[in-house]
């Protein structure tokens, strides 16, 4: 099993190389001439040539490509215009914010969605099933940002139960020096429990938004997959041997039904990590998505390119995890 996992890990390398290469080509094809960003409008051709020389744009393409690969391998994506920091520093600062929101939201979505799907499957074609299906259809039809706005309107504007969408901490609270970068973990490590509670409260609305949006497809896929598992021969055997319903559903059927659910969660996670742009913008969440949006608005190519590579690598890592989970859950995969 370990060997198989290492094998998958090796496979991720060419995928990552492909992503990096495509990013390079795309930037050269559609990125425009970066010289224009540095040169004043009245610059002479001589000055432009000098700028091109300095930026390395005068070199042949393959040389630029190799230099670019070397930079990427060192996680050097250049300097961002808007923050004047190394792009990799920016991204590393923002990554934990996105992960914290994504993992909480998706975790919550799975925690509710999977049991809901199981419940609908075992009550198939009866009232609870219709309720779950109607509810999840609505959840899938509604755009995530709209769910977020409605939650803000109800729970912040109207009821005042939760704080406003101003990011990871209330404005008056000074963020701690990052240790892991995960706000809740850092504050817990520092033992600053009053700020910890405030940070948790900030996290609730965006995480619930993500949970609602992800719970719906998770519940639907779980239901479909469970219905199939419950009709299988091995469940009939387990019934015939006298097992109770809970063992049948949660031990024997669910483990078989989980594979498509895990794939789906992987896709959802990839989307969130690759920049839940709208979600982060609505809640002022200082994550990768918000950074990407600012980079686009400011024509910050270095930042954008760094973001694309980060997002793609996160995607690759996510699916690597999905593959590993497959191998752990389904013994048949170990021999494939």
């Amino acid at each position: 099993m370990i060997r198989l996992i290492l094998q998958r890990l090796l496979w991720a390398l060419p995928v990552a190389l492909g992503v990096v290469t495509i990013t390079f080509i795309t930037a050269r094809l559609f990125g425009g001439d970066p010289t224009e960003l540095f040169a004043p409008p009245e610059a002479t051709d001589e000055l432009r040539a000098q700028i091109r020389e300095r930026l390395g744009l005068a070199d042949p393409m393959w040389m630029q490509y190799l230099r670019y690969l070397a930079d990427v391998a060192r996680f050097d994506f250049g300097i961002s215009f808007s923050t004047n920091q190394a792009v990799s520093t920016d991204l590393t600062e923002r990554l934990p914010a996105t992960l914290e929101l994504g993992l909480t939201g998706l975790g919550l979505g799975a925690l509710i969605g999977i049991p809901l799907g199981v419940f609908a499957a075992v009550k198939r074609e009866r009232v609870p099933d219709f309720l779950v299906r109607g509810f999840t259809l609505a959840g899938m039809a509604l755009p995530q940002f709209w769910i977020g706005l409605v939650l803000i309107w109800i729970f912040f504007v109207t009821l005042g139960w939760f704080p406003g969408p101003v990011g990871r901490l209330p404005i008056e609270v000074r963020p701690p020096e990052p240790i892991t970068g995960f706000m809740l973990i850092d504050l817990a490590l520092l033992g600053d429990w009053s700020s910890w509670r405030l940070a948790l409260w900030q996290l609730v609305l965006p995480a619930v938004t993500l949970a609602i949006a992800s719970m719906a497809p998770i519940a639907r896929v779980t239901r479909a997959s469970m219905v199939e598992a419950l009709q299988s021969d091995y469940i009939r055997t387990a019934v015939a041997m006298g097992h109770g319903e809970r063992v049948l559903w949660f031990r024997y059927a669910l483990r078989n039904a989980l594979l498509p659910v895990i794939t789906l969660i992987g896709v959802l996670a990839g989307n969130v990590f690759g920049g839940a742009v709208l979600l982060e913008s609505i809640f002022g969440w200082p994550g990768l998505g918000q950074y990407a949006l600012q980079a686009i608005e400011g024509s910050d190519f270095a930042a954008l390119q760094g973001f694309v590579i980060y997002a793609a690598l996160l995607y690759v890592i996510t699916f690597l995890l999905v593959d590993v989970l497959y191998i752990v859950i389904d013994p048949r995969m170990r021999h494939a």
Binding site: D233, R236, T237, R255, N256, I329, D330
Partner: peptide, 14 residues
């Protein structure tokens, strides 16, 4: 108790 026809399918694969 019962013995089924296709035992490989009748046992849980995971």
């Amino acid at each position: 108790s019962i013995v089924f026809q296709d035992a490989r399918a009748a046992l849980n694969p995971v």
